[in-house]
């Protein structure tokens, strides 16, 4: 019973099948030296792209850079100083205010709990369902898929009241789990569809091969399919982590009775007054809150998205 199929092997099988889809699966007999020459020539040509990409990206992120440097400016300089990046007069007052007014110290742990709970729920539920739905012969599949796509187009923004009543009814209204479920559930459509799209692109031969090796349905999913789906998982985690991290309305509504459970997204709103806004404090808060997202982004990009590419290459 050697049912363990390595991701690499699975990817290879996927590659072959996909080659058939593409319709031109030539025999892979590459003369090595030629290929290497071509590769290095290409690498040289790729270098020219930096001439375009560096200035392009600088202009692209200029507003973002302005936001970060504004966090070090005085309110006068931010509002009256125009569009220059470099502060004339550096100040850390804004970060101090972000820490006290925005309660960023208290709220960071809550936000982490909330965001991780949301992401775990979504990846678990969506990958299971996506795998099941990628089986084209599953009875009831059409109905579920149809409902998901239709639901995608009905705006959810103003339906908080029924959700609130439901969470109240099952007694989860005063904790972050209720909020996490309320945040995760409506956002399930896209992850499910992504997993369905990915799993249905993987040829049946692969899962059949696993079954011949004695792996059951669950095991095929867990040991073969889920590891293969890393690029999708990475993307789902990234997008929903960010969504949950910045989420405002749901964490607010679900922590009404316990404000100490609020998240950064809610804390950010402490900078908005009825008439005026503390713009530099907001910029400082936004800059603090963005750091974890950048870390998550780089981590997922390297370990997940690039990881699968490596497996396929070999």
């Amino acid at each position: 019973m050697s049912a363990l199929i390595t991701p690499g092997a699975g990817a290879q099988a996927g590659a072959d099948a996909a080659a058939q889809v593409a319709g031109d699966a030539g025999p892979p007999t590459q003369p090595r030296p030629r290929a290497r020459n071509r590769v290095s020539g290409q690498a040289r040509r790729m270098r020219w792209w930096h001439l375009f990409l560096i200035p392009f990206c600088f202009i692209w992120i200029y507003p973002f850079l302005w936001m970060v440097t504004a966090a070090f400016k005085t309110p006068q300089e931010m509002l009256l100083g125009g569009i220059g990046l470099w502060p004339n007069e550096w100040t850390l007052d804004n970060f101090v205010r972000a820490w006290t007014t925005g309660r960023f110290g208290d709220y960071t742990l809550n936000t982490l709990t909330f965001a991780i709970a949301v992401v775990v729920i979504q990846v678990l539920v969506a990958s299971l369902a996506g795998y099941a739905l990628s089986e084209k012969t599953l009875p009831g599949r059409k109905i579920v898929m149809g409902v998901l796509v239709v639901a995608m187009f009905i705006p959810h923004g103003y339906t908080i009241i029924p959700v609130f009543q439901l969470v109240n009814a099952i007694g989860l209204q005063d904790g972050l789990l209720g909020a996490a479920i309320a945040q995760a559930a409506p956002g399930l459509v896209v992850p499910v569809l992504l997993y369905v799209g990915f799993f249905s692109g993987i040829p049946n031969e692969l899962s059949e091969a696993a079954r011949v090796d004695g792996a059951g349905y669950l095991r095929t999913f867990r040991s073969v399919m889920l590891p293969l789906a890393k690029p999708v998982t990475g993307t789902v985690v990234l997008m929903n982590f960010i969504g949950a991290w910045n989420s405002f309305f749901i964490p607010l509504v679900f922590t009404l009775g316990r404000p100490e459970l609020r998240t950064l997204g809610v804390g950010m709103y402490n900078f908005f007054g009825t008439d005026t806004t503390d713009w530099t404090g907001l910029a400082a808060g936004a800059s603090i809150a963005i750091i974890p997202i950048v870390i998550v982004f780089l981590f997922l990009q390297r370990s997940f998205v690039e990881g699968i590419a490596g497996a396929v290459k070999s």
Partner: peptide
């Protein structure tokens, strides 16, 4: 495998 999705999605969406 569909049960968690159906339950959560029906109730909360």
């Amino acid at each position: 495998f569909l049960v968690p999705l159906v339950v959560l999605f029906t109730a909360f969406s």
